[in-house]
């Protein structure tokens, strides 16, 4: 049963990165789009993410609930020592979630839009950045349970080059997912060309940020290289991701949006797989060399069992409904809604 829970946890995180990430990316590319093209990008993006927008961030909640019910020690350790980046991420979530709705539902279009849009755009950047920092800090071995001054307990637990690089990398992944996604939403040839060009640029950006992560890991003496290339499954995952990236480059110009999305999803899953496989089941590495493991720090049997059943039963309801939602709103050429 514990494995059912762990698979759900992993999948929830992955889906949050993929779906939520594409959605953060929407804001990020809006930020990096020249003035003239902003409206086009925004409108295309909004049409695509509007209906599934609320559902996307539910994955984060599912992951948190799994953590605090099933792995309370891990949840509380992270909450205590990474309090500051968590609060920053929450501020980003609040700002973004509300600004998105406000700018789409405000009855009057006027100067308020000038307020909502920057809030939306910048919080789209901040949220994944801190998400990356939190994830990196969990494994960078800087959380020090014995620390007795504020800085080393609550600040240096997360403030280091590696975490920052992973934060930037996460932002670039979101931008990447969004640009690949948006190609399929373009309804004319010139838009498609425009978005394709953008996609090519973000792919280089991701590779560059990935290199930064390795560089910073080297500087901070984090054995990232060993983790990822050290064991066969991780290595295979990385090779598969690289091959698919090459394939992606080849078909970028052709009109194959679904294929592109699948490839992008595959690459991100492989990166997450390689990054988590190497130290599974440990998910928090502490400074004193001990680890918090999903297997040894799990809740009592009954808790895990009922959690697993709750998740299984829940997914019977959720998944078909979610797929149907996505399916319906992908059939684009319908009568436009009269909103």
């Amino acid at each position: 049963m514990i494995y059912v829970v762990i698979i759900f946890l992993w999948t929830a995180i992955l889906l949050y990165i993929l779906l939520g990430g594409a959605d953060f990316g929407a804001g990020i590319i809006e930020l990096f789009t020249s003035k003239g093209n902003k409206d086009k990008t925004r409108k295309t993006m909004y049409d695509a993410i509007g209906p599934i927008w609320e559902a996307n961030h539910m994955w984060l909640i599912i992951a948190i609930v799994i953590l605090f019910v099933g792995f309370p020690k891990i949840y509380t350790t992270v909450s205590v020592y990474l309090h500051i980046p968590l609060v920053c991420m929450l501020l980003g979530i609040i700002a973004r979630g509300t600004a998105f709705v406000f700018r789409n539902y405000d009855a009057v279009e006027d100067d308020m839009q000038k307020l909502y849009t920057p809030i939306f755009v910048y919080s789209s950047l901040i949220t994944p950045f801190f998400l990356g920092i939190i994830a990196a800090s969990a494994v960078s071995g800087r959380i020090d349970l014995q620390a007795n001054d504020f800085l080393s307990a609550y600040v240096f637990s997360w403030l280091n080059w590696f975490s920052i690089a992973v934060g930037i990398f996460t932002v670039s992944i979101c931008g990447f997912l969004a640009t690949i996604f948006i190609i399929g939403q373009a309804d004319n040839e010139s838009d498609r060309k425009f978005f394709t060009r953008k996609a090519r640029r973000t792919i280089f950006m991701v590779m560059f940020c990935g290199a930064l992560v390795f560089l910073s890991a080297y500087l901070e003496q984090i054995p990232l290289f060993n983790w990822i290339f050290g064991d066969t499954p991780g290595l295979i995952a990385i090779i598969a991701a690289s091959i698919s990236l090459v394939v992606m480059f080849f078909i970028l110009e052709r009109d194959k949006p679904i294929m592109l999305r699948l490839l992008a999803g595959f690459q991100v899953s492989m990166i997450l797989f390689a990054a988590t496989y190497s130290h599974f089941p440990d998910i928090v590495l502490l400074k004193n060399g001990t680890n918090l493991s999903l297997l040894t720090h799990q809740g009592q049997i009954k808790t895990i069992e009922s959690l697993a059943y709750a998740l299984l039963i829940g997914s019977i309801f959720i998944l078909p409904a979610l797929f149907y939602l996505i399916y319906i709103f992908q059939k684009r050429k319908d009568i436009p809604s009269d909103h």
Binding site: A55, M58, I61, I62, V65, I66, F68, V69, S306, L307, A310, L311, I313, G314, F317, I318, A321, L322
Partner: peptide, 10 residues
């Protein structure tokens, strides 16, 4: 809370 997750999602 874990059941609530499903309810929210729906």
């Amino acid at each position: 809370f874990s059941l609530e997750g499903t309810a929210f999602f729906i």
